[in-house]
């Protein structure tokens, strides 16, 4: 279990994936590559993503749960894929705003 709050950073323990919380708060069973994620920089990653959680993460993409209550931005990509509890986190549709500055 990790404690989500906007701005908090988490890392995978089995691949190079790192994320920053854009939206969401409170405890969450956040995993990457089938293993629980931990606070960024708290330990080295080691091992391999599990076969059923190896879809990979993409740099700069936003990942959300089905209800849209959690949004994580991938700040380092890796071969693992993320889940919260039993449900997979999927890439959110990119917002298409014109450049304003």
């Amino acid at each position: 279990m990790v404690e989500l709050k906007p701005g908090a950073k988490f890392q995978s323990t089995v691949c190079s994936t790192q994320v920053i919380v854009v939206k969401g708060s409170g405890p969450a069973d956040l995993c990457c590559g089938g293993s629980p994620m931990v606070g960024a920089g708290s330990q080295a990653n080691d091992g391999m993503p599990a076969d059923n959680a190896s879809g990979g993460t993409l740099l700069g993409k936003r990942y959300t749960d089905e209800g849209g209550s959690i949004e994580l931005l991938c700040t380092k990509a890796g071969p693992g894929s993320m889940t919260v509890g039993d449900s997979a986190l999927d890439v959110a549709q990119a917002k298409t705003l014109p450049a304003s500055d």
């Binding site: 906007p6 701005g7 854009v22 740099l59 700069g60 993409k61 931005l73 990119a94 917002k95 298409t96 705003l97 450049a99 304003s100």
Partner: peptide, 23 residues
């Protein structure tokens, strides 16, 4: 930091520019 980062995360698509784009 959280204000400016929210602005960028909320309004800009990461790596969204083509290689030929210049501002």
């Amino acid at each position: 930091h959280r204000h400016l980062q929210s602005y960028v995360f909320g309004s800009v698509e990461f790596d969204g520019a083509g290689e030929d784009e210049a501002t």
